[in-house]
Design a protein around this nucleic acid. Structure first.
Lengths: 354, 354
DNA sequence: CTGAAAGCGCTAACAC
DNA sequence: GTGTTAGCGCTTTCAG
């Protein structure tokens, strides 16, 4: 019982309008059959009383909440921000609201988030899982028949559609360009702590976004008879400081890499800052490329060579897929989204290896 | 009535555990007094039945939803993305979820969003209003006693606390630097369509973020006996193309500006792109400064001179204030947040005026 | 078209 | 501690 005075209820409006509650509900809710006369009387009464519909009560009754839960690792990351924009706009147009959960890439928080959303009886879930290896919480959703669509990240073994960008071809192009420029040692840095930590021995790697990038890179390298060294793949960098440390180690070790690949824009920013602090020039001392094409990529010096991904489209596609699933329609296959390689100027000839 | 089989309810758990519904609810809800014996029996039964709490039903009963509505103009804008991160993290720590509404800076959508959130009975509202002039929807919230905190933007005449950054001092510093470098004609571009459109005659201007920026700038100019020309203030640019057009007009007219001020990072990116297309160098041909300090600002060429704002802090402060308001405590004054001027290298001597 | 009555799942008095 | 009994506000048969 709240301390404030009771809400104006449908019953209040009903008696004021001199109509039954059922009929009032129909008028206000816009369902069922209502005569013009009753409709206007109810509307007037509602207006006079300052009636505000309570969609919570409606949801308890109908079992649908007209809202979907969206869980992302980091809303601050431009990738997620833009995805969420696509998701939000698409969903709103279809009459759904978005309940946003930011997990900071913590699996525990993700589990909590899903539980909370489920408690709120969201009609569907859109999640970019932090881990590909632990997915009991998602499996539970699928088992319970709750609409679920993954995006940006896939979870092998989970029967839920996923919208991911096919980055392999672009990654190969990028790698080819690197090799052609004489690079033999390439470093890769990513924030994600996924099963990709064991990227070189885990068959599930293809299902993580990091894994897909690596697959494209290593595949292309192999064609040239080259391999990536395990110590040059840094997955699981947490926070700017950690990213910078990884970058520092990669470019200043005994056998430094001559090219640095950033898994996303956040990594790129921190990495470029570190290179600058180290007094290393791009692409003179080290070549750089990023798996994302933020709006400022072409503005920095040198303009960044990137693998550009259709980010907004990812969000839109995921939302559409979820809409289908919520409508009970057999979920169409996720659309094919492709990344593409954009050569700007952050890749140059490999520095001479001693 | 949904087609799916009925949810497992507290009643089901109760009978399975051989306890009353009330006691079961207490055990499951973690309130009231429950004996160890009953607690474990209930927990076991719940587990076996796969019980999932329904917070919607709880909310209908208690009148509180443990969620707050956040409405922003553009989640894709790094400013909002970062604010929302601060908001989300702060609120989650206090047990609240975030229902996010993205309005695309449309007043109509904002009104709808507020209505929808109110229908969902969110416990509080956090909004960055698109317009300072139309606020009936917000006034209604205040009148109804619903906790509301504005952020980034203020609404004169509305009795709701607002978290805005004090940008005036920093704007003055920036302007002084510009004047010292010989600039006499300064252009300003902003996305916002607020009452600031009449910035030079509207006394309410101080309450819009754009207005506050302009106030700092014009105030400092006046000290030097200078004024801003009305046609050099472009508020209301919509979308990248429009922003670029404004910039183009400003720098290529009969009496072109020699310095360009961008109201946020999004404007800056589009503006810099336009300058580049025009073949104009920064700061050689035109000086540039931005009212935000995105992580990449120091990375571009030349490093951007900015007025940096505590963005994350804005979100956190707004969330805290709302938490206070929701707790019924007399809302403490909004904390003072100050922007600061960071001189990097995008400001140079004014180009000779013909 | 309209209304009565029975839910939806949970909480909150109030006795025992 | 525990159970009984009313709600919370809205929807939904089912008659008429």
């Amino acid at each position: 019982m709240s301390s404030a005075r009771r809400d104006v209820t449908i019953g209040d409006v009903a008696s004021r309008a001199g109509v039954s509650r059922a009929q009032t509900a129909r008028a206000l809710g816009g369902y069922g059959a209502v005569s013009e006369a009753v409709l206007s009387r109810v509307l007037v009464a509602a207006e006079e009383l300052g009636y505000r519909a309570n969609s919570l009560a409606r949801s308890v009754s109908t079992g649908r909440s007209q809202s979907v839960g969206v869980v992302v690792g980091d809303i601050e990351n431009p990738f997620f921000a833009l995805s969420v924009r696509g998701i939000s706009d698409t969903l709103r147009a279809a009459g759904y609201d978005v309940v946003l959960m930011n997990t900071g890439e913590s699996h525990e928080l993700e589990v909590d988030a899903v539980r909370a959303l489920d408690g709120k009886r969201v009609d569907g879930f859109l999640v970019a899982p932090a881990l590909a290896s632990e997915f009991a919480h998602l499996q539970a959703l699928v088992d319970a028949g709750r609409p679920l669509v993954l995006f940006d990240r896939d979870v092998p073994g989970l029967a839920a559609p996923s919208v991911v960008v096919d980055v392999e071809a672009a990654a190969r192009e990028l790698t080819d360009a690197l090799v052609a420029a004489g690079h033999r040692r390439i470093g890769f840095v990513s924030t994600l702590t996924s099963s990709a930590a064991r990227w070189n021995e885990d068959p599930q790697v293809a299902h993580t976004p990091v894994g897909r990038r690596l697959l494209g890179i290593t595949g292309a390298l192999r064609v040239h008879g080259l391999e990536m060294r395990a110590e040059d793949v840094r997955v699981g960098a947490r926070g700017a400081e950690d990213i910078r440390r990884h970058v520092r180690e990669l470019v200043t070790g005994d056998a430094p890499v001559t090219a640095l690949l950033a898994s996303d824009a956040v990594i790129a920013v921190a990495g470029l800052e570190e290179l600058r602090c180290l007094g290393l020039s791009v692409p003179g001392d080290v070549s750089v490329a990023v798996f994302d094409d933020p709006p400022w990529a072409g503005l920095i010096s040198p303009p960044l060579t990137v693998v550009s991904q259709p980010v907004l489209e990812t969000g839109v596609a995921a939302a559409r897929l979820l809409l289908e699933a919520m409508a009970g329609r057999a979920s169409a296959e996720p659309p094919s989204l492709f990344a593409h390689f954009i050569h700007r100027n952050s890749i140059g000839p490999a520095r001479e290896v001693e």
